[in-house]
Design a protein around this nucleic acid. Structure first.
Lengths: 243, 243
DNA sequence: GGCTATTTTAGACAGGTCGTCGAAAACTGA
DNA sequence: TCAGTTTTCGACGACCTGTCTAAAATAGCC
């Protein structure tokens, strides 16, 4: 309950507007009580992060189970992350705060470890798909890169994209009309560049995304885009010229 | 002078250790004087960001002038960013603070605009290379992407990578031994994936990087890696099998 | 019910920070 | 020497985090 109120406060008034006094006020408890649950303000923010990261982990785990080729399952992870960001837009703010003042002396190690563990499991979920792809010969390691390095590049791309999208930089005014689309294709280019089979133009990504949304994230898709599954996927070609 | 002291304070003691009182103390001025130069604490941090961003702009402009094919010039931008991050490691911290509490009511619009302008010029520098590559036919736009979208994907990748590297996440323990290397190759994969000529294996990237460092950033390279230009570039193959 | 022990809660308090403001000091120019 | 102007100063109010003791609520037992 405390976390729910704190989250709303963070979303509405930013980090500066998040004060322990005001939380105490809003929860009808007093400060002493709040501080019995959280060692400090950052600890509370970490607790918020843990909640959303747990959701992300769930999304990733579900996405990884999509029935399809490894490349499609990577796309599924992308869909999961996209939905996650849409449904929990405040997460990045919390994450930024955590990143900024973590290592922070006072935060309870228990929570810190918990957060780290979830993050690690998220990464492992992706690494597993990469490993499988390597085993199946759908991608081949080159240049001294390993599976984790591959994950890292994907991670960089999505993290960077969402950081920029969540920031106040007016991307549209910088000529980037549809950042989500750019991210989607950028990821595909990256996968193509590492030679991950099947190549981008060899399958219908739009159809795959639609299937993932229907089969794995029906409710989340409805929540994020409205019940009519409104977003139009501009995917270049919808009918692949090669099968 | 104020900024120099503030920067050192930020680097040494983090954002929490950066206090206006302590700055006043260290500068031998008083708080009132400090506040005549900066409207608030964030304004001061923005001023720090402007200084480093100006340096980044200079680096980018110089990199863009590298004599070579467009793809090599993109590599030059990568080298510039790499050196920039190495020489001004605190920049990301400031940037994060700015991002977090920007839009912030009180920061002087002058500085905000100045920072935005520099950032825009950095992006434009890259966009220009992309435009030239398109004009030369070294890369072809597909999937409804434009030059800015291409820049965006590159931006995402580097931003994400440096955010992760600057964070306290122990990448090495996550299996990412050399994040810089992973970023370097990830970028190449991305360029390959968009079909940017010449492809990665068709030229000696290591040699290009060495040339860029020698010709464009000799002093900066010495500062960042020591006078012996110590970093070994693990570039898969050093002697290209195809010319 | 009555009574004690334990847990939970409350909110005053100390320490610290940001940002303001009127007064003091320094400087300028004749 | 002196009036006008600019710069500097540091005390002050408001706020926020985190602590700590006293009061309230609860549980356990007869």
């Amino acid at each position: 309950m405390i976390l729910d109120i704190a989250r709303r406060m963070l979303v509405d008034h930013g980090y500066r507007g998040l004060s322990m006094d005001r939380i105490a006020d809003a929860t009808e408890y007093s400060k002493g009580t709040i501080y019995q649950h959280f060692t400090c303000k950052e600890d509370l923010v970490i607790a918020l992060s843990i909640q959303t990261m747990a959701k992300r982990e769930e999304f990733f785990k579900r996405a990884a189970q999509f029935q399809g080729r490894t490349r499609e399952r990577i796309v599924a992870i992308g869909v999961a992350e996209d939905l996650f960001v849409r449904l929990y837009p405040h997460h990045f703010r919390s994450e930024q705060i955590v990143r900024m003042s973590s290592l922070s002396e006072k935060t309870s190690p228990t929570r810190n470890d918990a957060l780290e563990a979830i993050e690690r499991r998220c990464l492992a979920t992706v690494a597993e798909i990469v490993g499988e792809a390597i085993a199946h010969g759908e991608v081949t390691l080159r240049d001294g890169m390993n599976a984790e390095d591959i994950c890292f590049t994907l991670w960089c791309m999505t993290l960077g994209a969402h950081t920029l999208m969540a920031s106040e930089i007016p991307l549209a005014k910088r000529g980037v009309r549809d950042a989500s689309k750019a991210l989607r294709f950028g990821t595909q280019y990256l996968l193509d560049g590492m030679g991950w089979q099947p190549a981008m133009h060899a399958f219908d990504i739009g159809a795959t995304v639609a299937r993932i949304r229907e089969e794995i994230f029906p409710e989340e898709t409805a929540l994020a885009f409205g019940p009519r599954n409104g977003e139009k996927l501009t995917n270049g070609r919808r009918h692949p010229s090669m099968s």
